[in-house]
Write a protein that binds this DNA or RNA. Sequence first.
DNA 1: TACTCAAAGTTATACGAATAACCGATGAAC
DNA 2: GTTCATCGGTTATTCGTATAACTTTGAGTA
Lengths: 336, 336
Amino acid sequence: MHDVAAAAGVSQATVSLVLNSASGSRFSEDTRKRVRDAVTQLGYRTNAHAKTLREGVAGMIGFIGDSVATTPFAGAIIEGAQQRAWEDGLLLLTVNTGGDKELEAASLDAMLSYRVAGVVYAAMYHRELDVPDALTGVRAVVLNSQDRAGRVPSVAPDEVKGGYSATRRLLKAGHSRVGLINIESLESGLPAAVGRYDGYCTALQEAGLEVDPDLVRFGTGGEEDGYKYAMELLTGPKPPTAIFCANDRGAWGAYQAVSDLHLSIPQDVSIVGFDNQATLAPFLRPGLTTFELPFVAMGRRAVELILQEAEPDGRVELMDCPLVERKSVTHPKEMP
Amino acid sequence: MHDVAAAAGVSQATVSLVLNSASGSRFSEDTRKRVRDAVTQLGYRTNAHAKTLREGVAGMIGFIGDSVATTPFAGAIIEGAQQRAWEDGLLLLTVNTGGDKELEAASLDAMLSYRVAGVVYAAMYHRELDVPDALTGVRAVVLNSQDRAGRVPSVAPDEVKGGYSATRRLLKAGHSRVGLINIESLESGLPAAVGRYDGYCTALQEAGLEVDPDLVRFGTGGEEDGYKYAMELLTGPKPPTAIFCANDRGAWGAYQAVSDLHLSIPQDVSIVGFDNQATLAPFLRPGLTTFELPFVAMGRRAVELILQEAEPDGRVELMDCPLVERKSVTHPKEMP
DNA sequence: TACTCAAAGTTATACGAATAACCGATGAAC
DNA sequence: GTTCATCGGTTATTCGTATAACTTTGAGTA
């Protein structure tokens, strides 16, 4: 900047003021032009560190993920966070810890050394977690999970509503025997498993139907469980006419079971998935009707909370999972 | 740091020297203890910007990707880059441009303002690209692609060797009629399509076999093409006993075709894929033998090139695609 | 006793930008 | 003819750290 000042024949302060002050009338047009010319000619670029040093806080937001970068469907979470950050001219300083607590602490430390405006602490899957102590000193948001201690605000998908909507989708099509293949046991405490089950029950009860334990299965989220339990349900005494698979991988297994039974989707059995897994759901035949985890929206929202002036509390903000309509749902056979 | 100095009853310089100097014998043990106590008591954390300001270059590396974060199988590329960077204590400043050239230029500018130690310019898929001008002023590496102008060094998968190895794998199993379902036409110029085809031809010729155009198909990379062309090849006059699908999605389609023809993999036809797509290849039945794009290794290598002292040239560094052995290959039927 | 040397610190400065406070010249108002 | 505002800048200082160069003290040595 001194070089620019010298080249333009003005003082360093003038350069700074010309480049930054919004109210442009402070200096003569001639001077401003000389400054700008010198800038382009010298290829001058401002030093963000000097600026940060003076201003106290950097134009960066820290993003710590456990395995977000390597988890296919969660990469979008970074995308959303980064989009929103950039709208305010901020960059993202990202670290993928792979679950390594030591790396987590060390990199968080490094981020704080860079005086980031805040830290997004993102998890690969929705759960309750303990945030590192150092996080409580900064503006922080837990993403796709919730702080067990309830001190840090968080943004997470609304699993209950998701399970409710998925079940509603099938009920609305006319089904009254709706199976559920869940991704985990309720004892696991996994919000996705518990919440989607809750939503399922609520939707049924609201429609005046009972929750039939014979129609509910708890697996481990793999497609082999989807296969096994779909097989069980469909070959049972009173088979369901529709199945809500609490994840797309399970739905894939269910597709294979339906195929092996020489039945068709959706004519013989309707299926709704969950996750809208990009590499799977659109490519199944027929395309899988499913619900999307709002990764981009959640990433955006988390950054937004950091940018907000308001003092954060430990509130959990739940976001809707939108329906992605494809071809795997229709009305049951017996209904004309 | 001044506060720490005051609390410890020493000068700021002493604090700095105590905290940073490796040769510890400069100060008395007593003083050093007082300094360290003051640091922990005050919760002092060094200001990286001040440090950078003095030293000229930041402990950060810029990472610009077109859609890397949202492309499922390429997230690993960030992972690798970040791992390697962290080994030298550096953080990654990441931006996902989504192909937006304006955003790309602006964010690159911001990165340079932060005096990053270098910039990794990563592409979602392997191609030839034009790097932004501003990149030539910094230490930069093109990742998963190549600089058309040849000025910036790059790291990319060795497609030719990949195609060669895949074909070899089938030849070694005893097949002599090996089909190829490619992901794109040769005219597309797509390195993955051209390279894998080259490797395929080389392997055949090396084995004394001719490249039979009737056994080669060019699709667009979707599973529907895999289905269609596998169907064509297998119902043709002289069907292949093995097919090399130049991507896993195509292989998935081929699986479906084989199933529809009431044939079995690998008994009736062996299949080799490419990409080792995490959400697909391990879950097909039987598991798909395929080749892995070395994303983590490439990410690591790119950062390594930036960290290296050596003055970079425009060299293209090709990295091996390792074989991931599963269950979709065996010897042909007629061979006992 | 005078001199050297090591130990244990301290002082001063630079990095690059932002900005509060100041300053000189010109023209208008009273 | 003095005052006073305005224009168009400049000077000086601050942020937090690293480090070259210097100082002080005390012990050892010739």
